[in-house]
Design a protein around this nucleic acid. Structure first.
Length: 782
DNA sequence: CTGGAGGATCTTTTT
DNA sequence: GATCCTCCAG
């Protein structure tokens, strides 16, 4: 482990730039350079000075990045420990490390400063913890803890949490931290948005409380690091000197705080390379500033800007569709992607009746491809919102198509895992109030809100932690009866477990804690079907701990690395959100749900106007450019949102695609297809030959649901309007009770009740279900 | 302090 | 429709 405080970082005996030694080294390095195209090679070889690489989708960004780092090492410009390379996700960091390893071998192990913004921030703060008011073993709070803590503060300040939700305050504080603002930087009216101007006050109190708890939230990992650098010129100088070369990946995703952090470090040697694509900036909602790309040339005068525009991934039509779509955005740096691939299939556009039919069309398409030998794991379905996944999962289960969901609820986010970790964290650091509060009454011990509130107020009054307060209070008569004895034994248990940290193996200790605290027991007693799985997960957790050599090491890992690799290598269809698809590529990509209100998402438009729309469009761009050979875009005329049926119009993005790169339902094999607006034979996007009671009703109701004029207030009338099940009396079903019907998914059944166009049906195989009448046919015995 | 009932809410997500 | 949260009665 390198130590900043005792490292003068002398110039290494590296070869003189442009000298003979370097030329010789470069020759040795030649093989990996030769397979690069001109732009890529420039980006790899421009080692000195500030460099901005604008890398379009599929232009070999990762390749450039890893080769560049390998090149730095190979030419002897820097030793592994002198390179700072930051990514956003652990996955990206892991992959980068792997690929550099392929190029330079074990040397990569010395790259101690390759990691995420947050892990590197945490590492730096731990070394200088006392300078920012923390102890080196401070804990990192997750979002749950953050909310819990804010709730305490809100309650203590006697503010109505219902009117001013803790989530909102958390959002505000995050927003400030993303912008690099400490409480002291705020102007008086900055906190206006919360509790009538008390935002700043709460932010101050929150930060103070974090210090008492010896804790930092994710934002602090950057912000406190920034403060450390600003207030301690000597510390900053040391790091500026150490990091001879810097590299930032996914630069378009950096927020202001990260930008300032990085700029401060780079001001030493000016050897900084940022790689990004403004067209793929899709995280504005969590603080990313595309402007950082524009600022780069201003802040680093003379910066070299390199554009990578040759796309190696997609066919001509796919690229044309994506490129044309994105030109509808203003305020982009502008790149023109080109490819040498000329032929290939056009982008397929389909309009369908509803979400279920859309899922059926896609699964049919997948089955057809699969039977022709197309691998399932080379197929992805990219949705805008996770609720859309359900329809596909249902369909895949029915059709027996193996699939995997990427980016779903992760292992470490499960309740039982968080509880178990909370026990471990309180053991490691009893002053972690938030974790203590989480498990103080789990399993139920009879310590309720009253007792917890008493502990919290007592802790605040004594400027100490709740754990300490509990230890003190049980000595007095302030807590009585059962609460007193349970609390006394619980705290004593933690003290005892803590005493065992150094003498017992951490896995053994973890098992002991879960056993003795009654936590395992709680799930064993639980009769719910999920209980067995939870116990399995706890075992799995202990198993994962074995990969670490100490409790502290494990805990640091889980607070920063919240992901686990899952079954990568089985042949399954990939199902994920557009957001989590960034950086991936597939032979075939399906993009369902291109409907106004869903994509672009209404909320994005409402809350961020034009900027919101443009970010949605970039999301569409990201989606299309994931595809190598086949891209399918589809939309439905009806979709169930929040349990209600709504009619929808095709997304404006559909019309923004170039007609020459698109095919619309060419073979006419779909009798129920709804044509895309511009591509429809008739001018009316909703006209089609589809003819069912539900469809006719949808036609009839269409005009009746014009958007309600916007009222003052945050919530506006959604554009998705037209509830088919609305009180419209004209919409009574043609079906009647007792009729025998057939349903595509559930089979035969008998109608029990009719409610508008919704039927309650007793199915022979599937049991009792509520279905829309447009999905059933009267079963004629003839 | 606990459990059930009713109510509000429902984009995206990493660290 | 489903879930998470809050409130109220025991």
């Amino acid at each position: 482990m390198v130590n900043a405080t005792s490292d003068p970082s002398p110039l290494p005996p590296g070869p003189k730039p442009g000298g003979i030694a370097e030329a010789a080294l470069a020759r040795r390095a030649a093989p990996y350079l030769e397979s690069l195209n001109e732009g890529q090679r420039t980006a790899v070889e421009a080692l000195d000075g500030p460099v901005l690489v604008l890398a379009g989708a599929g232009t070999g960004k990762t390749r450039v990045l890893t080769t560049r780092l390998a090149h730095l090492l190979n030419t002897g410009r820097a030793r592994p420990g002198e390179i700072l390379a930051v990514t956003f996700t652990n996955k990206a960091a892991r992959e980068m490390k792997l690929r550099i390893g392929d190029l330079v071998g074990d040397v990569v192990e010395g790259m101690a400063w390759l990691g995420t913004f947050h892990s590197i921030g945490a590492k730096i703060i731990r070394r200088h913890a006392e300078l920012v008011g923390l102890k080196p073993d401070f804990t990192i709070l997750d979002t749950d803890d953050q909310i819990r803590l804010l709730k305490q503060l809100i309650k203590a300040a006697d503010v109505d949490e219902k009117r001013w939700p803790a989530r909102q305050l958390a959002g505000l504080i995050d927003h400030w931290k993303n912008r690099g603002l400490s409480p002291g930087d705020l102007k008086a009216d900055d906190g206006f948005a919360y509790a009538g101007g008390r935002g700043k006050e709460f932010y101050t109190a929150y930060q103070a409380r974090l210090k008492v708890l010896n804790a930092a939230d994710f934002g602090d990992l950057i912000l406190e690091c920034l403060r450390l650098f600003r207030e301690n010129a000597d510390v900053l100088a040391r790091y500026q000197d150490r990091f001879r070369y810097m590299l930032v990946d996914e630069y378009q995703d950096t927020n202001v705080a990260q930008y300032l952090w990085m700029r401060l470090l780079a001001q030493g040697r000016q050897n900084i390379a940022c790689v990004g694509d403004d067209d793929q900036s899709i995280y504005g909602w969590r603080g990313a500033e595309v402007d950082n790309i524009l600022r780069f040339e201003k802040d680093f005068p003379g910066a070299q800007v390199i554009r990578l525009e040759r796309n190696y991934r997609s066919t001509q039509h796919i690229l044309a569709a994506a490129s044309e779509l994105i030109t509808h955005n203003e305020g982009r740096l502008g790149k023109t992607l080109h490819t040498t691939s000329t032929d290939g299939e056009r982008v397929q556009v389909r309009g369908l009746w509803d979400g279920e039919e859309e899922a059926r069309m896609i699964s049919d398409e997948i089955e057809a491809k699969h039977s022709k030998g197309h691998r399932l794991d080379q197929i992805a379905i990219l949705v805008r919102a996770s609720f859309q996944m359900r329809e596909f999962e249902d369909r895949f289960i029915t059709a027996d198509i193996p699939y995997r969901v990427i980016g779903g609820p992760r292992f470490y986010e499960r309740q039982e895992i968080r509880d178990a970790i909370a026990y471990l964290q309180v053991t490691a650091n009893p002053d972690n109030d938030l974790k203590f509060e989480r498990i103080i009454n789990t399993p139920r011990r009879g310590i309720g809100p009253t007792t917890v509130a008493l502990l919290a107020s007592s802790a605040r009054a004594g400027e100490t932690s709740m754990f300490q307060a509990a230890r003190d209070l049980v000595q007095t008569d302030e807590i009585r009866g059962k609460a007193r004895t349970t609390l006394a034994s619980l705290t004593a248990d933690f003290v005892r477990w803590r005493g065992l940290i150094d003498t017992t193996s951490h896995t053994e200790l973890a098992e002991m804690i879960l056993e003795e605290s009654g936590y395992t027991d709680m799930w064993q007693q639980d009769r719910s079907p999920a209980a067995a799985g939870r116990l399995e997960n706890l075992k799995e957790l202990i198993g994962q701990m074995e990969e670490f050599d100490s409790l502290a090491g494990f805990l640091e890992h889980i607070s920063l690395v919240m992901d686990t690799e899952q079954d990568r290598d089985t042949d399954k269809v990939n199902l994920m959100t557009l957001h989590s698809s960034k950086g991936l590529e597939f032979d075939t990509v399906f993009l369902p749900g291109w409907e106004e209100g869903l994509f672009p998402h209404q909320r994005s438009l409402d809350e961020n106007g034009r900027a919101g729309l443009e970010e949605e469009r970039r999301l569409a761009y990201v989606g299309i450019t994931r595809a190598r050979h086949h891209a399918w875009i589809s939309f439905a005329a009806n979709r169930r949102v929040h349990g209600l049926w709504a009619s929808a119009i095709p997304s404006r993005f559909v019309d923004e695609l170039p007609a020459s790169a698109v095919d619309v339902d060419t073979d006419g094999n779909s009798g129920s297809g709804v044509a895309a607006s511009r591509f429809a034979a008739q001018a009316d996007p909703f006209s089609s030959t589809y003819d069912t009671p539900g469809w006719r009703r949808a036609q009839a109701n269409r005009g009746a649901f014009t958007p309600v004029p916007t009222r003052a207030g945050p919530r506006r009338a959604p554009l998705i309007e037209g509830e088919l099940v609305a009180s419209s009396t004209a919409a009574a079903s043609q079906f009647s009770t007792g009729t025998r019907i057939f349903h595509l998914k559930f089979g035969y059944g008998t109608i029990l009740a009719v409610d508008g166009n919704k039927l309650m049906v007793e199915f022979e195989k599937a049991g009792r279900k509520r279905v829309l009448d447009s999905f059933v046919e009267e079963h004629s015995t003839g």
